[in-house]
Design a protein around this nucleic acid. Sequence first.
DNA 1: CTTATCTATCGTATATTTACGATGAACGAT
DNA 2: ATCGTTCATCGTAAATATACGATAGATAAG
Lengths: 115, 115
Amino acid sequence: MATAKTNEFEKEAIYIADIAKALSHPARIQILKILTEMDVCMCGDIVELLPLAQSTVSQHLKELKRVGLIKGDIDGPKVCYCVNPESLNKAKKEFEIIFNHYTCKGAKSCRTKKK
Amino acid sequence: MATAKTNEFEKEAIYIADIAKALSHPARIQILKILTEMDVCMCGDIVELLPLAQSTVSQHLKELKRVGLIKGDIDGPKVCYCVNPESLNKAKKEFEIIFNHYTCKGAKSCRTKKK
DNA sequence: CTTATCTATCGTATATTTACGATGAACGAT
DNA sequence: ATCGTTCATCGTAAATATACGATAGATAAG
């Protein structure tokens, strides 16, 4: 990020950007999909479904956990992952707000200043 | 990205991740907000509202243009930016699909395998 | 033509992300 | 206690992202 100025932006913008960052890799999108479509949700299962090494998948899971979109429960030597419905709903609403805001107000023409 | 494996993922996941990447910086979230709330939408106006240099803002605008969320019309020496309602709506729907999908199906407990 | 304004791009420095193999930690089974 | 399984973390390399100043290009104004 190079001398990040993250804290000089608006709180809401920082939150949305952070969630968006967690969603900004195809592997993490597919992980979310996998976690909701499979009964089992172990790291090993995900590794088999993605073209990535186990350590890389583990890093992606960590990023999704960081923002709270998923959670992992230790179950013996395994870790059982699942989506976190609460935080997913919160993120959903935040994105809805900005998208609705923009699409409702945003159709203003760029060409109003033309001669 | 380090030897990006982007093309080995699902097409839909790649699209959503790409939009999310464009939204993954607070400056770009605020730019979208600014573009819908102001009548004028010149680069210079945005520079005054953000704690960033003009060249940096220009780069953020370029990233938003890359995924089609905004467009810029050349108006003399200025460039008049505005959101692109069509692509914004498309992105909105894609996010809705994945969020609704997850929140409808995703509440499965992680603890079903516990003794 | 010259100057001023506005924006994009270039060059550069630094931070972060992505990816992998190797290793370590935790646990169940033997 | 030892072994195998599962996952996280470490170390590392390469690609991207972020940010800035400097510069170039395009146009309006004079």
